[in-house]
Amino acid sequence: MTAAETSADALLGQALVEEATKKSGLIWVQGEGPARALWHAWHDGAAHLVGDGPGEQPLAGLTDGGSAEVTVRSKDKGGRLVAWTATVTELAPHSEAWEAAVAELKGKRLNAPDGERMTGRWAAECRVLRLTPRDARTDLPDASLAAPPLPTSATTRHAAPEALPRLLLKRKKR
């Protein structure tokens, strides 16, 4: 392979990472520990995450200066499209980079409990991370990479009420 072909492959890989990550609502991120589905915003050549605060997504295993494996799914089919290795950088609250990232993240945050005060809460109680791509891999693995769901407190603890199927069927008949 010539140097020009290698350079062209690297540019195509970067373009695929950027476009796929921009369009995907979730990315799978694995730092030190299991992979997690995280919402993000793409800004200035990197994926940005906010979390580790009350009511926000957990960013366990992602440390400043560390690395993470990011897998991006196809928006239309939901399957794995591209994977890339990222350098993790924690942005200092109210820095220029933090303000720019938070402006993008604010528009992507759904159902925020505190609306306009959200960015102040993020500065005081949360971490904002920048995942900068280092390399991209478009080759698909032979194995499925399926994993059991992570334990969570957000599960149904009781069986569905017996009347629920009847109630649902009545709505459809109307």
Rank of each mutant, 00 (worst) to 15 (best):
residue 22 K to I: 06
residue 22 K to C: 05
residue 22 K to A: 07
residue 24 S to D: 10
residue 26 L to V: 15
residue 26 L to N: 14
residue 27 I to E: 01
residue 27 I to Q: 01
residue 29 V to R: 00
residue 31 G to F: 03
residue 31 G to D: 01
residue 32 E to G: 00
residue 32 E to H: 00
residue 33 G to W: 05
residue 36 R to I: 00
residue 36 R to Q: 07
residue 39 W to N: 07
residue 39 W to P: 02
residue 42 W to N: 09
residue 42 W to V: 14
residue 43 H to W: 12
residue 43 H to E: 06
residue 45 G to K: 13
residue 45 G to Y: 12
residue 47 A to V: 08
residue 50 V to K: 04
residue 50 V to S: 05
residue 51 G to A: 15
residue 53 G to K: 14
residue 54 P to F: 05
residue 56 E to R: 07
residue 58 P to C: 15
residue 58 P to W: 02
residue 59 L to M: 09
residue 59 L to F: 06
residue 59 L to Q: 01
residue 61 G to N: 09
residue 65 G to N: 12
residue 67 S to W: 00
residue 68 A to H: 02
residue 68 A to P: 11
residue 68 A to S: 06
residue 69 E to D: 08
residue 70 V to Y: 02
residue 71 T to D: 10
residue 75 K to G: 13
residue 75 K to F: 11
residue 79 G to C: 04
residue 81 L to S: 07
residue 81 L to E: 02
residue 82 V to H: 03
residue 84 W to L: 09
residue 85 T to D: 10
residue 86 A to P: 15
residue 86 A to T: 10
residue 86 A to K: 11
residue 87 T to V: 09
residue 89 T to E: 12
residue 90 E to L: 03
residue 95 S to G: 14
residue 96 E to L: 10
residue 97 A to Q: 12
residue 97 A to H: 06
residue 98 W to C: 11
residue 98 W to G: 14
residue 100 A to Q: 08
residue 102 V to I: 14
residue 103 A to P: 01
residue 103 A to T: 09
residue 105 L to E: 01
residue 106 K to Q: 06
residue 106 K to A: 11
residue 107 G to H: 13
residue 107 G to L: 10
residue 110 L to A: 11
residue 112 A to G: 10
residue 112 A to N: 13
residue 113 P to K: 06
residue 119 T to P: 00
residue 119 T to F: 01
residue 120 G to R: 04
residue 124 A to F: 01
residue 129 L to F: 03
residue 132 T to W: 02
residue 132 T to S: 06
residue 132 T to E: 11
residue 133 P to C: 07
residue 133 P to S: 03
residue 134 R to W: 13
residue 138 T to L: 09
residue 139 D to W: 10
residue 140 L to F: 12
residue 140 L to A: 10
residue 145 L to I: 07
residue 145 L to N: 13
residue 147 A to I: 06
residue 148 P to S: 13
residue 148 P to L: 12
residue 148 P to H: 10
residue 148 P to I: 12
residue 149 P to Q: 04
residue 150 L to S: 04
residue 152 T to W: 00
residue 153 S to A: 13
residue 154 A to I: 08
residue 154 A to Y: 02
residue 155 T to Q: 07
residue 156 T to F: 15
residue 158 H to A: 12
residue 159 A to S: 11
residue 161 P to A: 06
residue 162 E to N: 06
residue 164 L to E: 02
residue 167 L to K: 05
residue 168 L to N: 11
residue 169 L to T: 09
residue 169 L to G: 03
residue 170 K to P: 11
